[in-house]
């Protein structure tokens, strides 16, 4: 009897701690994502394959991230799974992972002085934990081709010709 109630208190305690820390970290992560996204808005990324006219160097750029979901959200997902339908507690996990992966890709492209990233693709892998009943974390890879203007002179030339 006392063993069972101890376990219950342990689970409830863990849920509360996981919720508080998990939602705090999520909020912080979103703030950082939004800030960095605004900073990188000068570098567009599209999944089209046709390059604008001009001379560019091409280089593969990528960014990946593995983010895990907190215990509270995992527990909530189990409750969701009982009824079926949308599992809202995993939405932020996937949203954060995709945006973070794209940001890291863009940061890599920025370092190479790219002007544009073409043909962006995402690859998502869920990393299963335990018996495979619950998700532990998810890895997202974003990759694309960065177009780096061959020289400053060429780049300005391109800007006028694509008008």
């Amino acid at each position: 009897m006392s063993g069972g109630s101890f376990q219950l208190i342990y689970v409830i305690g863990l849920l509360i701690v996981a919720y508080l820390i998990g939602s705090y970290r999520e909020k912080r992560h979103y703030q950082s994502i939004i800030k960095r996204e605004h900073a990188l808005n000068s570098l567009p990324a599209v999944n089209l394959k046709t390059a604008p006219k001009g001379h560019f160097q091409h280089e593969l750029v990528m960014g990946n991230v593995t983010i895990s979901v907190d215990y509270f959200k995992r527990f909530l997902a189990l409750l969701h799974a009982f009824f079926g339908g949308p599992i809202t507690s995993y939405e932020t996990l996937l949203d954060r992972s995709r945006r973070e992966a794209l940001l890291r890709m863009k940061e890599m492209a920025k370092e190479k002085h790219a002007a544009l990233v073409l043909n962006v693709k995402y690859e998502t892998v869920s990393i299963f934990k335990g018996s495979g009943k619950s998700i532990g974390s998810v890895e997202v890879l974003a990759y694309g081709t960065a177009l780096i203007p061959s020289s400053q002179a060429v780049a300005s030339n391109v800007a006028t010709t694509t008008q």
């Binding site: 919720y19 605004h38 567009p44 939405e91 780049a155």
Partner: peptide
């Protein structure tokens, strides 16, 4: 190149608004 822009889509489209608690 001038036709390339990168506006920020609205926040919270891919996530639900219901409070998790």
């Amino acid at each position: 190149m001038n036709s390339y822009h990168n506006p920020q889509p609205k926040e919270g489209i891919n996530t639900s608004h219901a409070h998790p608690l």
